[in-house]
Design a protein around this nucleic acid. Structure first.
Length: 562
RNA sequence: GCGCGAGUAGCUCAGCUGGAUAGAGCGUCGGCCUCCGGAGCCGAAGGUCGUGGGUUCGAAUCCCGCCUCGCGCACCA
């Protein structure tokens, strides 16, 4: 049991002895001002109403009923309107270091997921061009959320879903063709330079296969385009493959890997779209109107009903809503207890209707399935101006642009330091020109400095076990604050995981790095009397472990030197 | 018009699910390198937490109204 749990137990026991109701759970928190101690409880104020007594009187009685020593409390006091502040003795506080050293990379991990399967779907870009900054934010977010859940004992599958058919792909196909044969593009075609690259690569491959010169290949392509459906299929397959590979390369450079790539087209070829449509049609929430088949999603909180199958004059095909539902049905059928979709906020309108579709099927899928993490838009700013263009992509800034310019670690950190619901301004100048003052380097530097102690001292960190040390020599204020941050890591990680909010980890890392720098600046390790040096080495190693664990969650490297 | 999100320091944003004197980075101004890495540290200036009500011991946080900004409101995907 850690010091927090011991203290909570003790406060609870005292509260019961004063007649607190069974349901009462005292809140323990870190006082904002460290002069108030290590922990504070609002128990006396919270009990004022049920006990019908004054908070200050209750606080006094609570303290009297407590056995402070049992919880490692060195000092306690009553302050303000009725807070009870506790100061732990140095030995109890620092004993957490031994836990950190013993658990190492596992420190902070938990097992709330107990091996259950969770599916995280993110990026899910269609293969019509390079990944843009929004995809970058999503890649960083989805990967970090995956990592959070893995740290909590979930069996995580990272999934990329993409639409390899439909109107956009045909537009891409036409764009590539026109570029290849030198015809002008229309407004709604894809305009980036990458289209020309795909076209050139295709012509090369085509020429090679037909054993003709590129010019001749171009003529054959032009001549056969309208008549030869095979040719169109060939271009489509080539272009999609080319862009998929490019997206993979970019994601790899960003340090993101997927376990499953799910093709929307497979939902059709495997008959899942038809099956889902048939089941929805007979499940009791369907109706016909204006020749189309509708689902009464308003039965499940949607603001209007949705068409499932278009009317005959509109082609009679299912709308995209059906494959969306069919796809999520597969997640459930594949055994995922949770499914989390990370998407741009412009997709928020699908949330209600997808859930409605799953509910309408009445197959026992939980009401909140799938969960959504929606993030707001990213605007990229350079030189004080919004950047909207990149040469390669034409109308948008790519992930590749950012990674090349700022570096993978910094891009990830910048995307993760803010809450997803906040709109994000990515200032390239700031991220790059101030890379020396960059928050991510600040954190990495703290890790490198701690590593440097062992390097300079010519010691193997593995030899530091923390056994047989007297922790009470770690009594400096800077040491206490740093240790408290290490104590808090598991709870912080758990909170970030529950909320699916990686930015909490990013901010905690920055704060903790600050505590490391402060401690490092103020106190020496090497050359101190042996008892102090050994204890501080243990603290240095523990802090290094926890920083590395936090950086690992965010997918950012923890360098030993910079 | 309806729905979702956001409005906190000059700028970019945190604020641990209701706590004590609201924080960080950048920017501005001023200090600190014989000492394990100065990619660091210390200090200063800078706030009617969009606004008006409400809830209670206590509100940036919860509830209601209003204002501003972003996104979305197809038999497109």
């Amino acid at each position: 049991m850690n010091s927090e749990a011991r203290l909570r137990t003790e406060v609870e026991r005292a509260a019961r002895s004063l007649g607190a109701p069974e349901s009462f759970v005292p809140v323990l928190e870190r006082p904002r001002d460290t002069a108030h101690g290590d922990w504070a409880t609002n128990a006396a104020m919270a009990l004022a109403k049920p006990l019908r007594r004054k908070p200050l009187d209750i606080a006094r009685d609570l303290l009297a009923a407590m056995n402070p020593g049992a919880a490692g409390v060195a000092e306690s006091s009553i302050a303000g309107p009725g807070f009870i502040n506790f100061r732990l003795d140095a030995g109890h506080l620092a004993s957490t270091i031994a836990t950190v050293l013993a658990e190492g990379a596992a420190y902070g991990r938990s097992n709330g997921g107990s091996g259950r399967a969770v599916n995280i779907e993110f990026v899910s870009a269609n293969p019509t061009g390079p990944l843009h900054v929004g995809h970058g934010r999503q890649a960083a977010l989805g990967d970090a959320i995956s990592s959070l859940l893995a740290h909590a004992g979930w069996n995580v599958t990272r999934e990329f879903y993409y639409n390899d058919g439909g109107g956009q792909i045909e537009r891409l196909c036409d764009s590539v063709f026109r570029r290849a044969v030198g015809e002008p593009l229309a407004e709604d075609h894809y305009h980036g330079d990458y289209v020309a690259e795909v076209a050139a690569a295709y012509l090369d491959a085509f020429a090679g296969r037909e054993s003709v010169a590129v010019d001749a290949a171009r003529e054959r392509l032009r001549a056969g385009w309208e008549a030869d459906g095979q040719l169109r299929d060939d271009v489509r397959r080539f272009a999609v493959g080319y862009l998929r590979r490019e997206q993979d390369t970019d994601l790899k450079a960003f340090g993101v890997r997927f376990d499953v790539y799910y093709l929307e087209s497979s939902l059709y070829t495997e008959g899942r779209v038809d099956d889902t449509l048939a089941q929805l049609a007979k499940a009791g929430h369907a109706f016909e109107q204006d020749g189309a088949l509708w689902l009464r999603t308003t039965d499940f909180g949607d603001d209007k009903d949705r068409v499932m199958r278009r009317s005959a004059e509109k082609g009679g095909e299912p709308t995209y809503f059906v494959p969306d539902v069919a796809y999520h049905v597969t997640k459930w059928q594949r055994g995922f207890a949770r499914a989390i979709d990370v998407q741009g906020a412009d997709h928020h309108s699908t949330v209600t209707r997808v859930r409605a579709g799953l509910q309408a099927l009445e197959m026992g899928i939980p009401v909140g399935y799938p969960e959504y993490v929606l993030h707001q838009m990213v605007t990229v700013v350079r030189g004080g101006e919004e950047m909207k263009i990149s040469k390669r992509a034409g109308s948008y800034v790519t992930v590749r642009d950012l990674v090349d310019e700022v570096g993978r670690d910094a891009v990830r950190y910048f995307f993760l330091m803010r809450k997803g619901e906040s709109q994000l301004v990515f200032d390239v100048d700031l991220a790059r020109s101030q890379s020396e003052e960059n928050p991510v380097y600040y954190i990495q530097m703290a890790h490198a400095r701690l590593s440097g102690i062992f390097r300079v001292g010519e010691m193997d960190p593995a030899s530091i076990t923390g056994e047989g040390l007297s922790w009470d020599v770690l009594s400096q204020p800077e040491e206490r604050e740093l240790i408290k941050a290490l104590v808090d890591w598991p709870a912080l990680l758990a909170g970030a995981t529950d909320a699916l909010e990686p930015h909490r980890v990013a901010n905690w890392l920055h704060d903790t790095a600050g505590l490391v720098h402060l401690w490092y600046h103020k106190h020496h390790v090497l050359g101190e009397p042996d008892a102090i040096m050994q204890a501080r080495l243990a603290l240095a190693k523990a802090a290094r472990i926890v920083l590395a664990n936090g950086l690992d969650v965010l997918g950012i490297s923890a360098p030993e030197r910079m």
